[in-house]
Write a protein that binds this DNA or RNA. Structure first.
Lengths: 356, 356
DNA sequence: CTGTTAGCGCTTTCAG
DNA sequence: CTGAAAGCGCTAACAG
């Protein structure tokens, strides 16, 4: 004549595994096994599951489980700009997709935005490993903390950091290759449109001071690659990777008399390049007759079908997959090395010899 | 006389708050306060922090904290397609950005992909509240579980579910409005290109059977809205929201003799509409003279500048923000109601009276 | 196959 | 302002 554990009319408190165990007449550990798929007789399991159903218990609390196991199954993905800006860039999105593919449905991706102000979230968030999508010096403190916590870290195209596994592409080399192509075609008066060099999102003239303060590895590498061929290459720093930015920069660079105008423009992303091409066309210039425009990325851009952009195709999804598999390996206690992926030059129809 | 758990010479195991407390010569609770910003004398706090530094202790373990507090600060965002497909759609990305804006840097967004196979992750992941971005019937089980767990849920443009707060836009109404506009212009032979009706990503003829099995609320609502005006409206179900899909569908619909060809096409998204327009142009048809094309969304589409698309502008970011603030309210124990946002008709240059 | 026993690392009453 | 005690809910040894 046991007092049946009348659960307060199901009001506030949820049932716990212990309650279920008691109702099923088994021990806690047995009940636990029933849920984690351990080896118990199917009769017992049935009994436990029935009890659970009765109590409206729907499985172990993830919080408790993660404390106990020391694992949450969550991988943090840290971006340094707001979500919209980050993922509007097709390469970044592709990389995220690659991560997700590799990690599988088994683990969730915790999107953490570190715009630099409060580094709090990243310190107090629950995750087992972190992937930085481009990481700049001002993450140093967070990185330090995660290192202390023994959280494996991987950076996709970020600044090199001790203890952070690097997944990179050959930005500098590929950029140099592209520049060499343009040089070979005969161009000598060039300009570039770079991606932002710092976290400041503001269009600006490309100056040496700016270059010195650069914190964005990708932009800097691409610039340095191009400068291997064109030593003092100048131009404009865009406020982001969009065709609008490219357009603005293009207008600025191309609205000059033919003798001063660059005969070729190296844009650091395809979106920028598309914008530059539109600017050229708006100025009644013909590409590539009047101006050669090359990009970087190999993005399939919606609605850009008139031209076949000369560019470098980078393995974007692959970057994500590599990062994902590095994380998996690190969590398994292995010690994988840095990853370096390579891009492929694609000569399209937007490049040609200079006029005249 | 308990056996003291000797932590293997500080090798693997991290220091805990208890260790710090001991070294600082204070109690655990005091040490805790030092980190959570509770009220303790600054002398004591200093002592604790120094001890922490000495032990390489970088703050409370998020897992333990979240168990103790019953809160993790994580909001789950559930999408039903792979990351790439979901966020390539500008509206979905904008909504995600809205969520992130509203929730602030304080809380992380846990991206959970529920493609229907293993519903495991969503059940075992740590989060305090969930936001579904479009949710279909096959999430029923997960929803059931979360309800049992008392996890607040919000669905952006999903199927209605008991206990899931709905954030919707006036899909049906707006679609009807658009259809009415086309009707007023004099069109009588129409076709539509819909978004996928189910999780199957495959282009298909729009049939009644398909409509009956539809699980995607958005697509269905937009279709029903249009059918309020054009009762038996037929057409094609696209495999996704992209201009490529629109192009394929457009080719299919428009490659017919003028007498059979629809004089107007209602596309369920702007990307689809752009594709349809390209198809029309590829077939040497002039928009809107030979065919009227309208979209839905109000997306700014890269590189689509020749036309001003007739469409309906939906408050995409706003959807996300509303969901975010609903989550905040729910977590605070309030009981906010469903949210319904409205779209605005935009008459551009891609619609006009039928030829002849 | 099942039960007993200890905590995971932290916060939070409750006293002093 | 500080300390002592009591778990949050679960799982992992280890016995039986």
């Amino acid at each position: 004549m046991g007092v049946h554990n009348q659960p307060h009319a199901g009001l506030a408190s949820r049932a716990t595994l212990a309650d279920v165990a008691k109702l099923a007449g088994v021990s806690g550990s047995t009940a636990s096994l029933a849920f984690s798929g351990g080896s118990i007789s199917s009769a017992t399991r049935e009994r436990v599951l029935t009890a659970a159903r009765e109590l409206n218990y729907s499985g172990p609390d993830p919080r408790a489980r993660s404390l106990r196991q020391g694992r949450s199954g969550i991988v943090g993905v840290i971006i340094e700009d707001r979500v919209l800006n980050s993922f509007r860039d097709p390469m970044t999105l592709a990389a995220l997709d690659g991560i997700s593919q590799e990690l599988g449905e088994g683990s969730g991706l915790l999107l953490l935005t570190a715009t630099g102000d409060g580094e709090s979230t990243i310190q107090s968030a629950v995750f087992d490993a972190a992937i930085f999508m481009g990481c700049s010096p001002h993450l140093a403190r967070s990185i330090e903390i995660m290192r202390q916590r023994n959280v494996p870290m991987v950076a996709i195209e970020g600044q090199a950091f001790d203890g952070v596994l690097a997944v990179n592409i050959d930005n500098r080399h590929a950029s140099a290759e592209l520049a060499a192509l343009v040089h070979t075609l005969g161009h000598r008066r060039l300009a570039t449109v770079t991606l932002p060099l710092t976290s400041v999102r503001e269009r600006a003239q490309l100056t040496d001071e700016l270059v010195k303060t650069a914190t964005t590895a990708v932009s800097l590498d691409r610039l340095l690659g191009a400068r291997q061929v064109f030593a003092n290459l100048g131009g404009i720093v865009a406020a982001g990777s969009s065709s609008d930015e490219g357009f603005a920069a293009g207008m600025e660079l191309l609205s000059r008399p033919a003798e001063e105008r660059p005969t070729a423009i190296l844009a650091q992303s395809d979106l920028l390049a598309v914008g530059v091409i539109r600017a050229a066309e708006a100025l009644a210039l013909v590409v590539p007759r009047d101006v050669t425009v090359v990009g970087f990325d190999g993005a399939r851009i919606e609605g850009f079908t008139d031209h076949d952009l000369t560019t470098v195709r980078q393995p974007a999804t692959e970057k994500g997959r590599a990062a994902g598999s590095a994380v998996t390996a690190l969590l398994a206690g292995e010690t994988p090395g840095d990853v370096s992926l390579s891009s492929v030059l694609h000569v399209g129809s937007t490049s040609g010899p200079p006029a005249g």
